[in-house]
Amino acid sequence: MPDVWIPAPMQRITGAPDRVQVAGATVRQVINNLEQLHPGIKELLYDEELDDITPGLAVIVDGDVSQLGLMERVSEDTEMHFLPAIGGG
């Protein structure tokens, strides 16, 4: 299952550990399944009105910032992170 790294502040808010194995074939499915394990985390990661990753967050899938967000496909050995989206100059 994809290996999801939970940001430290979200660990405190949701009681989630720093890493958790979550089933899913896309980022959207992983977030939905993560919510089942740790209620409350979805609203930190997902913007319902935009139907997208929360503005200001980037989802990193296997080392690269995903350009497809929720639609990005993940595999059994995917490593996923949620990090601040960094704007350049």
């Binding site: 200001g56 989206a85 704007g87």
Partner: peptide, 11 residues
């Protein structure tokens, strides 16, 4: 006061 993504990482 909602935040919006600017697509390039900025918001």
């Amino acid at each position: 006061g909602r935040a919006s993504d600017l697509a390039e990482g900025a918001m």
